[in-house]
Design a protein around this nucleic acid. Structure first.
Lengths: 232, 232
DNA sequence: ATGCGGCGAGAGCGGTGCTCTTGTTTGGGT
DNA sequence: ACCCAAACAAGAGCACCGCTCTCGCCGCAT
């Protein structure tokens, strides 16, 4: 993150900041963002609630810190899974690893998942330093597609982007320095939105009455998306 | 809903209940579920906050009523769109109408969308009378697929369900009295989760930096899902 | 006519986020 | 070595929240 703290005060501050986040994350995991209370965190730490404001200027700032951490957590989990599954050119296994990592992390940390992928907190808008953690999963997906090579074999043709979308995505590829064609980017967003939709449906109870134990359907959907992505 | 109210008291009660919901819905639309406050609603209605508890036993019950109304609102919007687009056997137009209806409703009512499709409120679990409004959009989609006839022409084969998923969805079809094959149900959930994912991504800011003005990508994705659904 | 039940209002409880003030500790510049 | 400013912890307090309880009032069915 930053340079090592020099003075004892800096060290204590860094430590306390970390402790606060830890306790807050535990409360978040147990009760959800809604019920996360600064005062309760302060109580558990044995300090006055007003003292917390030396470390986080508001409750929303604390939540933002937890959001960044959650993005990093799921991002690292996904990167590990992708790396473990497909270094030797098996992109479909890597894709499956990515999807399974997202889903299992989401099921283990539903409140943190809801915090980052569910409805945003009222006045929240992402600061710039959120961007890198925010992008880890999409970048991991793009990495799989890049490594899977240019030989696309999906059921959709290669040049199937309508004009406006092509120009828009060309600009995105340019601006982001991504070395994939725009059509691949489109397929990536399509697939990522698809698995996100299923995971959210499962977590938020929208699959009740249809794919209720979601494991078979999730595996099926992940495989169909792999077909669409043209993954070998 | 129920029989017409007879006495003046019943009439007043029904009217006030409606007024409370209206004011609450306005607050919800303006500020989000998080900031919806019983006391503020009571203030705007010129009554004591404690009096509201004669009509809704808790804040969560009020929110539940708003959830049901939101499901009904998006459901009716979708049904209208489907009916307007495709009565004469143009299933792809009907599917496009469904998707556009969902997205435009979501963009017009982001907080209500977040309420029903975003992270659920902490202790909430859907009561039984939520089931019908909850199911209107999925049923509309199944209606399109049923009317599109049995001649499936998508890029995936007809009998592509793995064993466990097939048996699970056969049971669902049986239990729900749905007259579609299990494979069609699977494709329906797949497609519905996909467009839901895109709409949620757009509303919750996850498309920032990729498909940021989402119109072209949404149209593209809806069309790709139509292909996958085998819609003519 | 009467009694009961629905109703509105008020006070009040425990909780929240956040601010302001007060006194203390700490560390760097002189 | 000292001194002062900055960082810090704590407490009181403000405005708000959901919710409960009690109290009078009034319409309605008996």
């Amino acid at each position: 993150m930053t340079a090592a703290p020099r003075t004892a005060r800096d060290r204590a501050r860094a430590e306390l900041t970390h402790e606060i986040k830890d306790v807050a994350r535990r409360h978040l995991a147990a009760e959800g963002a809604q019920r996360l209370s600064l005062r309760a965190v302060a109580r558990e730490l044995g300090m006055a609630s007003s003292a917390l404001y030396r470390y986080f200027p508001s409750r929303d700032e604390l939540l933002t810190a937890l959001i960044v951490d959650a993005y990093d957590a799921v991002g690292e989990r996904v990167e590990r899974a992708v790396e473990a599954a497909g270094p030797a050119g098996h992109p479909r296994a890597a894709w499956r690893g990515l999807c399974d990592a997202v889903r299992s992390w989401a099921r283990e940390h539903p409140h943190e998942y809801a915090l980052i992928y569910g409805s945003p907190v009222p006045g929240y808008q992402a600061p710039d330093d959120t961007l890198a953690p925010f992008s880890r999963v999409p970048f991991a997906l793009l990495g799989i597609l890049r490594d899977s090579g240019p030989d696309f074999a999906g059921p959709f043709g290669e040049a199937d982007l309508p004009g406006p979308l092509a120009t828009q995505f060309e600009a995105v590829v340019e601006a982001g320095g991504l070395d994939v064609p725009p059509a691949t980017l489109a397929r990536a967003v399509f697939a990522w939105a698809g698995v996100f939709g299923i995971v959210s449906f499962e977590l938020f109870g929208q699959l009740a009455g249809s794919a209720d134990p979601a494991d078979p359907f999730f595996a099926y959907a992940v495989d169909r998306h792999a077909d669409l992505l043209g993954l070998a």
